[in-house]
Design a protein around this nucleic acid. Structure first.
Lengths: 128, 128
DNA sequence: CTCATTGCAAAACGTTTGCACAAAA
DNA sequence: TTTTGTGCAAACGTTTTGCAATGAG
């Protein structure tokens, strides 16, 4: 593979991830892809996700033991997991500032950080 | 079960988790338990972990798709994942203050947060 | 044509469970 | 005795892989 060649299915999966408001579970990605391209197999979704991850345009987000995927390159952000409905959202605010290279507790050199907030999403907070 | 009865294996697993400097993977827990009680089966480790989790003295920590376990009740803390050696450590500092009930982005009610720092642990930072 | 990509089924992996037996009360 | 805990092996859900067939260049 010299220049990246695109296939319809790969494009659909990329688009599905790009449009999502938060990281998606594999089952979700499969369902959304199938609504555009009926008959897509689960293996293709996994293979394409691996490809996109290796290539860097997508990355996995593990949350509560479930692996989800989201498009990369959307700026620094974090995730909100709703304890009521289980959906995961992207939050574009970051409550901390930890410059790369910060040293914690005498020796832990921080390169990156990841924050997950748990609570109730707007819909669930309104409901009760 | 009225009063909690203790068995040797359960005690060993509790102690292994209590002593660890960070959350442990199941394989680690098995290995450390087997060094005290040869012949322990993997199922026993899983069953005991489930028991301890239900009981609240232990909880799972999912990190990079791997499920680890640590003792509960050790105060608010976060985790540091070394990108070089793969070990996970507990950090007793918390870089943020997010009181329960804080509302983000118009509607996300935060109940808890979880932070993972990525970088090099003291040993790996020293090595290079 | 050649080579990448696909669906399917099988395999692999981590985790859970059924069951008969051992240990504890 | 009854009850709880155990090892083993089978079952289970998720992810990966082998392979023959399809599609693209």
């Amino acid at each position: 593979m010299t220049a990246p060649r695109s296939t319809k299915q790969r494009d659909v999966i990329s688009r599905v991830l790009e449009i999502a408001e938060g990281p998606l579970a594999v089952a979700d990605i499969l369902a959304r892809t199938q609504s555009d391209v009926p008959g897509v197999g689960l293996a293709t979704v996994y293979r394409t996700l691996k490809l996109l991850c290796d290539q860097g345009s997508v990355h996995p987000v593990t949350l509560d033991g479930e692996t989800r995927y989201e498009a990369s390159g959307r700026g620094h952000h974090h995730h909100f997991s709703c304890t009521a409905c289980g959906r995961v959202f992207t939050l574009h605010a970051c409550p901390v500032s930890i410059p790369s290279g910060t040293v914690y507790q005498g020796g832990f050199v921080v390169e990156a950080h990841e924050i997950t907030l748990y609570g109730r999403c707007p819909a669930c907070a309104a409901t009760g």
